[in-house]
């Protein structure tokens, strides 16, 4: 039985619920979860209920890493640290944007915590506004495609590199569509002492505009097109990548999502898709995916 109980208010086909379940499956019951504000927090804990079968705390949007570091310090001070894992599970907004400073501080201080970012590439809880994790040309409610716009004009922030630059002993990317791989990485992150980071790509059916049944399928396409490379970094060096045998063109990933629909209907869209393809090509080369 999952340590994330059913009966929560996640959308049918929710990627956050999947990611939360995988994290708990990987860590087991001897852990303490810290959630910043976000979908996962809101839909799992409407008072007086909680979907969490492990100790869980939510404070604010931007402070999960600081709260987690305080929990770790308290357990150490009280002599209760032993094997208990402390994991912060935050969305991309809480991680790449508003909570970045607290994460930087916690990673610099070297607390023995795991930070898992569930990246669904926009502020889904508030209605699909763009975040620092929103990819180029995704249409969101604050970066909508329009007569003179192809949507979000900015590239996705490279958060794993930022964390690695803090000297974290273990940084990995994962995807909800590759559950065994994700759980293996979360487990490894937990086993390594010090602040570790797993960045999980999580396709959101509501925000990306696809059928809830396709969450895994879309996640796989992101990996297969090199839009989301899967790799591990230990002490700043890439030590493992998931190779792609037949890399697919990015169109296959883009066309199944409503947030990129305009690229296929607007004049000039094909040229813009080339820019996205260039990102995937860079990923393939940089991470040695082929």
């Amino acid at each position: 039985m999952s340590l994330l109980a059913p009966g929560h208010r996640g959308c049918a086909g929710c990627c956050d619920a999947l990611a939360g379940k995988f994290v708990l499956d990987a860590l087991g019951s001897d852990c303490i979860v810290v959630s910043p504000t976000g979908c996962l927090e809101v839909f799992t804990t409407p008072y007086p209920e909680s979907a969490w079968d492990v100790p869980w705390v939510h404070s604010l949007f931007e402070n999960a890493a600081a709260v987690a570091s305080g929990v770790e310090a308290a357990l150490k001070a009280l002599g209760k640290k032993s094997n208990t894992k402390i994991v912060a599970i935050g969305g991309d907004g809480a991680t790449l944007d508003i909570g970045l400073q607290a994460i930087s501080g916690a990673f610099e201080r070297g607390h023995d915590i795991i930070y898992v970012c569930i990246d669904n590439e926009a502020y889904m809880n508030t209605g699909v506004q763009r975040s620092g994790a929103t990819p180029l040309y995704a249409s969101t409610t604050t970066s909508p495609a329009g007569k003179v716009s192809f949507g979000n004009p900015l590239q996705k922030k490279n958060m794993p590199a930022i964390i690695a630059a803090h000297g974290s002993p273990y940084v990995a990317t994962a995807s909800v569509a590759y559950a065994p791989d994700m759980m293996k990485k979360v487990k490894k992150a937990a086993e390594i002492k010090g602040p570790t980071y797993v960045h999980v790509h999580a396709p959101c059916c509501t925000g990306w505009k696809f059928e809830g049944s396709k969450t895994i399928e879309v996640g796989k396409l992101a990996v297969e097109t090199a839009m989301w490379p899967l790799y591990e970094m230990e002490n700043g060096t890439i030590t493992n990548v998931r190779k792609l045998r037949n890399r697919k063109p990015v169109e296959e990933y883009l066309k199944v999502q409503g947030r990129f629909k305009h690229l296929f209907t607007m004049p000039g869209g094909a040229d813009e898709i080339k820019k996205i393809q260039a990102t995937a090509d860079w990923n393939a080369k940089h991470f040695g995916l082929e």
Partner: peptide, 27 residues
């Protein structure tokens, strides 16, 4: 005999204590 945290802002100072206090520490 305590854990002393030199944090990167007052916001994290109080946030860390929220976590620590919830974990049962005197802060």
């Amino acid at each position: 005999d305590c854990e002393s945290m030199n944090v990167e802002s007052e916001f994290s100072a109080i946030s860390a204590l929220i976590g620590a206090s919830a974990a049962g520490a005197r802060t």
